[in-house]
Design a protein around this nucleic acid. Structure first.
Lengths: 189, 189
DNA sequence: ATATAACTATACCGTTCTGTATATATTATA
DNA sequence: TATAATATATACAGAACGGTATAGTTATAT
């Protein structure tokens, strides 16, 4: 990938999170990235394309980071799901954290027929399914149910953190997750 | 309150939720409300004022509705908090439900110094404190902790419902709330 | 050395945005 | 019926928006 295309993506990601997507014009993006609109429109045909690519990259970056963490830890499936929210906490509390793209995007583009909304919705569903897979491998009976509960916690905590940084919401989400996971494991054997 | 001012508020509330706040211009609002910009700017000095009033009205309407529901049911504090998510579910599943203002607004206005963001943050805090009061009256020891957990569930469920209507997220939030409340009550006696 | 590709600089188009000015029409009240 | 308040109609200012056209610059590879 071109260094300029990458720089535009990085800058756009940051500006979208700190100022909002609709409030960030392409002029601002190219000014901060130190390039011109011609270059931006060479790599991204429309602003919508840019937004979609930003969302995709943000989510895959997070998923890759999370997978690495999970694979570096215990190999036992039951341990993996138990540690999930430890990593989420680490990620949310890191200085680089600026929010979750698909949560913000779905708020700015509420129309369910909008491609940006659809991608957000899909990413949310995929993350839930990812948790479901972890739960399944841990032999939890109602894996999908637990995954839905945990994804609610995740989204709620990120939302709360967005409203007020340092709110400590993630700590309570973690605590709640432990209760739910322990309960689901107990009910499965 | 003038009938026109009220109509503008109602129309703006609907449009902000269905199209997004920044994506809704004042021209659209007055066209749908069947009035003119002159009238809008007579009652609301700026668009920001209108947004703030929409947020205030939405939240107080919900709080009033919720209070009525709670007061109409059992008077026992322990029952009240147990039924909280029943009413939330009823509200979310009602056809009139279009989302939670402060959640969407905080996403569209991420800057913590923005008045709209600040009001959103305050409303989120006030709702959490409201749950905390219920928990306190039910003699729950860690009332604030439970309130934070329940508010996470609330925000996560509303967020999920926004991503995909009819996702059933609220059903699982309710189930989770029961587990948390039962646990908190057990730990308090 | 020259051709090719990548990038910059800048001006512009048409639209939409918030907000205002001006003038007219409607309505309620005294 | 006169007066005053309220609402409408419409045009416009000034800025920002997404996106394009044209021309010039730089680097690289054959």
């Amino acid at each position: 990938m071109s260094v300029l295309k990458d720089r535009i993506l990085v800058v756009a990601t940051d500006l979208f999170h700190t100022r909002g997507i609709n409030s960030t014009g392409v002029d601002t993006i190219v000014a901060v990235a130190g390039t011109t609109k011609m270059t931006l429109y060479k790599y991204f045909h429309t602003k919508e394309t840019l937004i979609l690519e930003v969302l995709q990259k943000s989510q895959s970056d997070f998923q890759n980071w999370l997978n690495d963490k999970l694979n570096a830890g215990s190999k036992k499936p039951a341990d993996k799901i138990q540690h999930l929210f430890d990593y989420v906490e680490e990620w949310v509390n890191s200085p680089a954290f600026i929010g979750v793209g698909f949560i913000k995007a779905s708020a700015e583009f509420p129309n369910e027929e909008n491609p940006i909304h659809q991608l957000s919705s899909q990413q949310s569903r995929e993350f839930r399914q990812f948790i479901g897979k972890l739960a399944n491998e841990a032999n939890i009976k109602d894996a999908d149910g637990l995954a839905l509960q945990l994804s609610l916690l995740f989204e709620g905590a990120v939302q709360a953190e967005q409203m007020k940084r340092g709110s400590g919401a993630i700590k309570y989400a973690k605590k709640t997750a432990k209760i739910l996971i322990d309960g689901a494991i107990k009910a499965s054997f």
